[in-house]
Design a protein around this nucleic acid. Structure first.
Lengths: 148, 148
DNA sequence: GTAGGTGCAAACCTTTTGCAGCATG
DNA sequence: CATGCTGCAAAAGGTTTGCACCTAC
């Protein structure tokens, strides 16, 4: 799925929810789809402002909330006090490894892991909606360079 | 291990690190050990102030940082903007399920799950230090009561 | 006696909100 | 043309910090 298609899909869904499709939202969605990084609200604001310096921080926050509710974006907590986001469209579910030294975030997926979570939840009577798994440690490069 | 023993252990470890053992730290550690809840810094402050109303918020934050570095306490993010902590002493490693309706946090442990994480990390060359797994959904009670 | 710790209050930083004006449907 | 959205600036709320005083070792 190309960005334009994804962009249209978001537009369609928001309108269906009775929300308006403004030039700001269009720009923010495009910027969010264009990066595969795990961005903070402020970083996304920076990206948007390259196109239109007048976009306000409040609008970015408000739009991220809308996108999260609509399921196009997911928050993830990098443990540094800032919320980070990633878009979910055309992006299979995955978990994250965070390098505590250089900060790099690597995505991975393990089906057995997913399955065991379901099993564990069922045992406790939980119905899982979503989950968050983050492994913290040292990436290959940092191990080579710096011990630990 | 009783609280007094755990308390002594923390004291011993901090002193070994060249840190001082003050009446405030003693009180904060005792309060932290006494609860099995997942407390915020502010809640812990409240507990401490029942014994000594003069303990300052800054000291609680600073002490939590020290305890986290020494490995006696672990942070966990409940997704509500506040950091939460739990003590680790005499408390085997476990993961958390969070009910999105009533907010209850249930601890669980699954060895196979732990193992698969190691495997996944090794495949990517990561050396894991710690991890955080949270499953979000509906607990048994909330499913019964309220759909979802 | 001298690090290191404490309390206070102010600073910080991310996120949220009130409000007046604007643009979408 | 009504409702929802935006921008601005101010507020909120959790956490950190500067500084003067204090205390454990």
């Amino acid at each position: 799925m190309r960005i334009d298609d994804e962009h249209g899909l978001v537009r369609q869904e928001l309108k269906q929810r009775g929300l308006r499709w403004t030039s700001q939202r269009s720009r923010i969605v495009r910027a969010a789809l264009a990066t595969h990084d795990h961005y903070t609200a402020d970083e996304l604001l920076g990206l948007c402002r390259r196109d239109d310096p007048r976009i306000s921080r409040a609008t970015v926050y408000r739009t991220l909330t809308v996108l999260e509710e609509a399921g196009f974006v997911e928050g993830l907590d990098a443990g540094d006090g800032k919320r980070r986001f990633e878009h979910v469209l055309g992006h299979a579910h995955h978990d994250h490894m965070v390098c505590l030294q250089c900060g790099v975030i690597v995505e991975f997926r393990d089906d057995e892991l997913e399955h065991r979570q379901e099993v564990a939840a069922r045992r406790l009577g939980f119905a899982i909606k979503r989950h968050s798994l983050r492994l913290y440690g040292s990436c290959r490069d940092c191990q080579r360079k710096g011990g630990a």
